[in-house]
Every structure is written in structure tokens, then in C-alpha cells.
């Protein structure tokens, strides 16, 4: 089954429904939040600012990094060598307190795909909140043992001569994929390329789609 994930850059507006949640979870969240605010562990406005910061991180940031790397070989070299510094300088964001970041390059011979079998490690600084499937037991269990089957569920078929490398984010680093630049994009501007890059291609479960003629 093919799934379209074009333009999932737009963060969906949050919804105020607790679908399938236990009532005690809702109470516990409120109790902890109120208590920790009363205790000056944090303030209500710090929570609000943190939410805004989190919402400001979304896959468009990653897409801008990818597009620049496609058009500027020297930038790409810096990105693969020291991702954090290259991303900070391009996007003007501060990654000092976020986990280390490694960008892995997909080529015609080697296709990286990212997962976290132990929890949900994800390059949030450049891709935002991980999709639900990334955190699901199914993805976390299966990608390392049957990656081609899992990729097929995303509609991605890779030739046998392409090495599939599953990267399990086990420790202090997060990984982002630099996907291959698709064909027929030679004349596109950098901004047009940004719009082409999907979140899922930067996780490695899909390829960047060729532009529609």
C-alpha cells in the first residue's frame, strides 16, 4: 500500500480530545503540572514557551538542510562531517543543548533507514515530533529484522543491489537521512527543492518523489 506523505511539513493543530486515554492520566498530568508550578520547578509560561519551541521544529527545517546539501557540495561535505554546526549555521537555530546529530547520506548503492528499537529517539531538532508509527512497537520491532518488508509497507521498493542499512538510534546521537536528489530536478530552485523533500524521506522509509511534470 502506497502512502502519500507529501507536504507533511505543516504541524497539525493540536486537538483537545483524549482519545482512548485513561481518565487517571488526565488527572495525573494536571496534578503534576499544578504541583510542580507551585513548587517553582517550572512556571506556566515556561511550559507554554517550551510547547512553542517544540512546535517550531518541523520537517521543513530538515528539508531546507537537504535542499542546500543538494545544491552546494561544500555544504554537503560540512553537513556529513559536522551536522550540528552545519545545521546551526544554515538555519540560525541553537542546537547546543540538543543531542548530537549525525546525517547519513543515501546513495545509489546505500540506503539508510532510521529507527529506535529501545524507545523513540528521533532528530526532533530538525524533524519535530516523531510520527506515531515511528514510536509503534511494530516499527521498532520489525525494521531491524525485515527492513525490506517494512519499506514495502511504505511503498518503497529498492533494488537488490542497493545495500539497506538500518540505523538503530541506541545512544547519545540522533540520525537524519540525507535522501537522494530525484531525477528531473536539475532546473528547480532551492526553494522548490525544499518543497519536494518529505519527512519520511529524511527518516529513510521513502524516497523523495520525482516532481510531477
Amino acid at each position: 500500500m502506497a502512502h502519500e506523505h507529501h507536504h507533511d511539513h505543516d504541524p497539525h493543530a493540536p486537538v483537545n480530545e483524549a482519545h482512548g486515554m485513561r481518565p487517571d492520566s488526565v488527572l495525573l498530568e494536571r496534578a503534576l503540572r499544578e504541583l510542580l508550578i507551585e513548587k517553582n520547578v517550572f512556571t506556566a509560561s515556561e511550559i507554554q514557551r517550551q510547547i512553542e519551541l517544540t512546535e517550531s521544529r518541523n520537517p521543513e527545517l530538515g528539508a531546507r538542510v537537504v535542499a542546500r546539501a543538494w545544491v552546494d557540495p561544500r555544504y554537503k561535505a560540512r553537513l556529513l562531517e559536522d551536522a550540528k554546526a552545519a545545521i546551526e549555521s544554515l538555519l540560525g537555530i541553537d542546537l547546543n543543548l540538543t543531542p548530537d546529530l549525525i546525517v547519513v547520506e543515501n546513495t545509489p548503492q546505500l540506503h539508510h533507514v532510521i529507527c529506535c528499537t529501545l524507545c523513540s529517539c528521533y532528530p526532533r531538532a530538525v524533524l519535530g515530533i516523531p510520527p506515531a508509527w515511528y514510536k509503534s512497537p511494530e516499527y521498532r520491532s520489525r525494521l531491524v529484522i525485515e527492513p525490506r518488508a517494512v519499506l514495502a509497507e511504505f511503498g518503497t521498493a529498492l533494488a537488490d543491489d542497493v545495500e539497506v542499512r538500518v540505523v538503530d538510534s541506541t545512544a547519545d546521537t540522533r540520525y537524519m537521512v540525507l535522501p537522494r536528489r530525484p531525477r528531473h530536478t536539475e532546473r528547480m530552485s532551492e526553494a522548490e527543492l525544499v518543497a519536494l523533500v518529505t519527512r519520511d524521506s529524511m527518516i529513510g522509509v521513502t524516497l523523495v518523489p520525482e516532481p510531477q511534470p
Binding site: M1, H3, D8, H12, A13, P14, V15, N16, E17, A18, H19, M21, S25, V26, E29, T117, L118, I129, P131, A132, W133, S136, P137, E138, Y139, R140, S141, R142, V144, I145, V150, E153, F154, D168
Partner: peptide, 20 residues
């Protein structure tokens, strides 16, 4: 610690975040 355990198909639907 789930790597390699048997599991079903991956549910690809996108979920909205809640205020919670």
C-alpha cells in the same frame, strides 16, 4: 527492548497531537 520481536504491520496513520 523490541528489536527483532515478531509484530504485525505498521499502522501508517498520522495522529494529531493533543494538548495533553
Amino acid at each position: 527492548d523490541l528489536g527483532g520481536l515478531p509484530a504485525g504491520p505498521v499502522d501508517l496513520s498520522e495522529h494529531d497531537r493533543t494538548f495533553f
